[in-house]
Design a protein around this nucleic acid. Structure first.
Lengths: 241, 241
DNA sequence: GACCAAATATGGTCAGACCATACACCTATC
DNA sequence: GATAGGTGTATGGTCTGACCATATTTGGTC
């Protein structure tokens, strides 16, 4: 037991909030009591409640808004992506992670997702289907590498969404954001995007055709092309996030 | 731009700390200034510094200790696992995630890792090698389902470590902890562990023999046996964590 | 009914105090 | 001189109470 259920006050507040979520069946969209009210209910100071709220906010579980009315206060939300993104970015800064590992994990998720997506019935999740097609078209019309990469990210995220695992989707979103600048530089280096688009269409048609194995292969080849300079070193994150 | 670089004070403190980490080359083990000192340096209140510290702590980037001496204060650390675990647990509580998705993601990582591990040269990472063998033996001698599951977790984590991707390892650790109680109940239901151990040995020998495909297949079959009742519903987390 | 102004509830921030903890330092003793 | 014990002090942890900023609600006025 590394943590003996936290003796600090804000940890007890966290435990109580977690207990209430479980017991009262609170869910996304519901509101937590205000800072002052919760402080009085639990007989703790407002500072402790605030520190607990910062933790919940960091975990992407609540969104806090000032002012008055139904939208003010701490609202239960669902955005693990932001947390994961922060986590990845900071760990790259600390050199606890390498770009190589991030890219490999992305390949893993995307290969898996492409295979799963190919196995889905034709009419499955029309929204992600539309998103993939739209991203493909938008990449054709992209005027700058930045714009291309933006739609490229959308394409790969839609692909992951299509596999239907929201946990994988959340991780994929975080990985994409982390790799964005890297991807942009790669496109600049390449100088053109024709090969990448050929890859994308190969992936897309394999999924549409229901060929899981082909889809997985196409994804692997695409990422090998997109991230060639990454060998095995401890590349650091570009200076600007 | 969802976040305009945070107008709140504690977010500016976070940005400044992140800047210092990047600029000064601070790394794991180094100490951040004390709360009072940082507050004065940045001309903000101690409360704001504390809220920033709570965020860093939640992200697993610092560990805070009271008292005096070289171990006191906020030390840069590296423990994304705790954050991921909290993230998973709370999102399961909010029903934003299903057990099915968690199990699927675990299968994905473990299949990938088993295949990668099988491709490694024989002498690679002797530590995880030893850990796998030790866990196998310990499972044979386990007297209770709880003890069996503890060593089972160690086995699967060692397998993932052997693939050499620390990001995947961190995710796998979080998934394992999240699934622990579930796994324990599954072993209780099964009533015996012979089949599971047969699976484990199959996985182990496939990796040792360097057969990536066999290793991946063995992992898939093992997890299908270990988590059979999970179909497609929105199973909730067991009440006690 | 529309519009504008005041009241109010909410989070955001600050200053200052006191407590608990754990090491640092110094003194007394041998 | 070495050791043991007490005291000092820097650190995080918590609380109180105040004030500010913001956004909605309320109510009055035209």
């Amino acid at each position: 037991m590394p943590k003996p259920t936290g003796s600090r006050t804000f940890e007890q507040v966290l435990a109580e909030i977690e207990r209430r979520i479980t017991a009262s069946g609170l869910t996304v969209g519901d509101r937590l009591p205000g800072e002052r009210q919760l402080a009085e209910e639990l007989q703790v100071s407002r500072s402790s409640v605030r520190e607990a709220f910062r933790v919940l906010e960091t975990l992407g579980l609540v969104e806090v808004q000032v002012g008055r009315g139904p939208n003010a206060g701490a609202i239960l939300s669902y955005d693990p992506g932001a947390t994961l993104t922060d986590l990845l970015r900071l760990n790259l800064r600390l050199s606890s992670l390498t770009m190589r590992e991030v890219v490999d994990t992305r390949l893993m998720i995307e290969q898996w997702s492409a295979a799963q997506a190919a196995r889905m019935p034709a009419g499955h999740d029309p929204e992600s289907s539309r998103a993939m097609a739209a991203a493909l078209a938008a990449m054709d019309g992209a005027a700058t590498p930045e714009e291309f990469v933006r739609h490229d990210m959308a394409f790969h995220i839609a692909l992951t969404d299509r596999a239907g695992n929201t946990l994988n989707s959340a991780i994929m979103r975080a990985l994409s954001i982390t790799l964005r600048q890297y991807a942009t530089e790669a496109v600049h280096r390449l100088g053109h995007t024709a090969d990448l688009q050929t890859d994308h269409r190969l992936i897309h048609s394999a999924i549409t055709a229901g060929s899981a194995a082909d889809a997985a292969t196409a994804v692997a080849e695409h990422l090998a092309r997109a991230y060639p300079p990454i060998a095995d070193g401890r590349e650091v994150l570009p200076s600007s996030a």
